[in-house]
Deep mutational scan, measured.
Amino acid sequence: EPELVFKVRVRTKDGRELEIEVSAEDLEKLLEALPDIEEVEIEEVEP
């Protein structure tokens, strides 16, 4: 069974934007590691 992958769009407080694809596990780590995120948009990517 393929692992869930999420497309994550992040905007930081200083206005930088970042778009990455991460696994569910990595997404959890990412959110814990970035306390200064202003906006996060997450969508599931079809395998």
Rank of each mutant, 00 (worst) to 15 (best):
L4M: 09
F6N: 01
L4E: 04
D14Y: 04
I37M: 06
L30F: 14
D14G: 04
T12E: 01
P47W: 10
V5H: 08
G15Q: 01
S23Q: 04
D26I: 04
E41C: 12
E39G: 10
I37W: 14
V10R: 01
R11E: 02
V8S: 00
E38S: 10
V22S: 02
E38L: 13
I42T: 03
E28D: 09
A33C: 12
G15Y: 01
P35R: 15
E28Q: 14
L34D: 04
L30C: 05
K7L: 09
L30W: 09
V10G: 02
V5G: 03
L31S: 02
P47F: 12
L34A: 03
E21A: 06
R11F: 07
E21R: 11
E38F: 13
R9G: 00
I42N: 02
L34I: 13
V5R: 15
E25A: 13
E41D: 08
R11C: 07
D14K: 04
V40P: 02
L4C: 15
I42W: 10
K13D: 03
V45I: 11
E43F: 15
L30D: 00
E25T: 12
E38K: 05
V40T: 04
I37Q: 03
V22K: 00
E43C: 12
D14M: 03
E43N: 10
K13H: 06
E41N: 09
L18A: 03
P47A: 09
E17Q: 10
S23N: 10
P35I: 15
V22P: 00
L34G: 03
R16A: 06
E19D: 05
V40H: 03
P35F: 14
E32H: 09
L4V: 11
E25S: 13
E39S: 14
G15K: 03
R16E: 05
L31W: 07
V8A: 01
E3S: 11
E43M: 15
A33H: 08
K29N: 05
L27R: 01
L18M: 10
E43A: 09
P35S: 14
E28L: 12
I42E: 01
P47G: 09
V10L: 09
G15M: 02
K7Y: 04
G15F: 01
E28M: 13
I42Q: 03
A24S: 05
V5L: 12
E41R: 09
I37A: 10
E43V: 14
A24V: 06
E28V: 11
E17M: 13
R9N: 03
L18Q: 04
V40I: 14
E25D: 09
E44C: 12
E44V: 14
I20H: 02
I20Q: 02
V45G: 04
I20C: 10
L18R: 04
V45Q: 08
V5I: 10
E17V: 15
E46C: 15
E43P: 03
E38M: 12
V40R: 03
S23K: 11
E38P: 03
E46S: 13
A33P: 01
E44Y: 11
G15C: 01
P2I: 11
D36W: 08
P35Y: 14
V8L: 06
R16S: 05
E39W: 15
V22H: 00
E3L: 12
L34S: 06
R16Y: 06
R11D: 02
K29P: 02
V22R: 00
L4I: 11
K7Q: 02
K13M: 05
K7C: 08
L18S: 02
V40W: 13
E39V: 15
R9H: 06
K13E: 04
V8E: 00
E41Y: 15
E32Q: 12
L31I: 06
D36T: 05
E19T: 13
V5Y: 13
I20P: 00
D26M: 08
L31Y: 05
E44D: 06
K29T: 06
E21L: 15
E32M: 11
E39Q: 11
P2R: 13
E17N: 10
F6T: 01
S23G: 08
A24T: 05
D26C: 06
E19W: 15
E44H: 10
P2F: 10
T12Q: 04
E25V: 10
E46W: 14
E38G: 08
V22F: 02
D14L: 04
S23I: 05
V8M: 02
V45E: 04
R16G: 04
L31E: 01
L31P: 02
I20S: 02
I37F: 13
A33W: 14
E28K: 12
E44G: 09
E32F: 09
L30Q: 01
R9F: 04
E32A: 13
E32C: 13
V8F: 04
E28A: 13
V40Q: 02
E38Y: 13
T12R: 05
R16I: 07
P2W: 08
E44W: 12
E38C: 07
I42H: 04
R9A: 02
E1D: 11
E1K: 15
A24C: 08
A24N: 03
P2Y: 13
V10M: 05
V40Y: 14
A24H: 06
P2M: 09
